[in-house]
């Protein structure tokens, strides 16, 4: 069938520390869940330089692993690998799973608070009666307003920063979409995951946004690629913004610097 794809993913996140790290914890959101349009056929998570302490489901029903660093380690490598079968639904994900009320996704977070730049963008969207059309317009407007720029990541950037600067990475475009959608009164959320692209080897995971459309439920919008996600997209985690869906986030002690290396491979089977 042409509207299904079996995708093979391998994703390795490596932290190299200049000095041995006495203590550290990482929250890892790297396990995709099966749902109506996505079936996880196999998936494994391995940790070097640390160990899995616990696994749980968070408020967005993401599968989270808590990883502790081996005391004194100078390297932490988290590798996931597996196969996922995805259907093309033209971006439609469907009903909310879990107990999160929709109003939760209308509340701005510090990263997705609309300022004057976002407000101007919202203002520019035609008053289409159909929310779906408005959201497509918004996605297109964001790809124009926030030029995609690889390699330049500004970790602390907010949606407003990216729109004001006029460029950013997929994370910034997703934040900008979320901020504007919420400013329009539409529930929206952040998605982290993988995308099958021409080049198998990628240097980062992907990110896009989903918005709530009455009758359809959650619908995905990838402003970076000017489309709604199809069967080339693997959804891994969702959240109100990057902070709640980040593949790896945590804390550690120790003063030395660290280097982060990310290697992602996505292949169609």
């Amino acid at each position: 069938m042409t509207d299904h794809l079996r995708l093979r993913v391998r994703h390795v996140t490596t932290y190299d520390y200049d000095a041995p790290v006495p203590w550290g914890l990482q929250q890892v959101r790297l396990r995709p869940c099966s749902h109506r349009w996505q079936r996880v056929l196999s998936w494994s998570l391995t940790v070097e330089g640390g160990r899995r302490e616990a696994a749980f489901e968070d408020q967005h029903r993401n599968a989270v692993d808590l990883v502790s660093l081996d005391p004194g380690t100078t390297r932490l490598a988290i590798a996931v690998e597996g196969e996922v079968e995805v259907a093309d639904t033209a971006g439609i994900v469907g009903p909310q799973s879990g107990f999160g009320p929709l109003w939760l996704f209308q509340r701005p977070t510090p990263r997705t608070t609309a300022g004057p730049a976002c407000a101007r963008l919202v203002e520019s969207i035609a008053r289409e009666p159909s929310p779906l059309h408005r959201l497509h317009d918004l996605s297109a407007a964001i790809s124009d307003a926030v030029r995609y720029e690889t390699g330049v990541t500004h970790v602390g950037w907010t949606a407003e920063d990216a729109v004001a600067a006029g460029h950013g990475v997929c994370q910034d475009q997703a934040h900008a979409f979320i901020a504007c959608a919420r400013a329009m009164g539409i529930p929206a959320r952040y998605v982290s995951g993988y995308l099958l692209m021409e080049q198998e080897a990628q240097d980062a995971a992907h990110a896009w946004a989903e918005a709530w459309v009455p009758d359809l439920g959650w619908v995905g919008f990838d402003a970076a690629n000017r489309i709604s996600p199809d069967h080339r997209y693997v959804r891994v985690a969702t959240g109100l913004d990057y902070g709640e869906a980040a593949p790896v986030s945590g804390a550690r002690t120790g003063t030395g610097a660290e280097r982060l290396t990310v290697a992602v491979e996505v292949r169609a089977q």
């Binding site: 968070d58 408020q59 879990g98 107990f99 999160g100 009320p101 939760l104 509340r107």
Partner: peptide, 30 residues
């Protein structure tokens, strides 16, 4: 309140009493 919010669905408590409330802790959902 941290699950189905039946009391809100039943119209006995306005959603905004929860939504606008800083004491509601989203991390406790579910």
């Amino acid at each position: 309140i941290y699950h189905r919010q039946e009391i809100v669905r039943a119209g006995r408590l306005p959603a905004e009493m929860i939504a606008r409330n800083a004491a509601f802790l989203p991390q406790m959902i579910g």
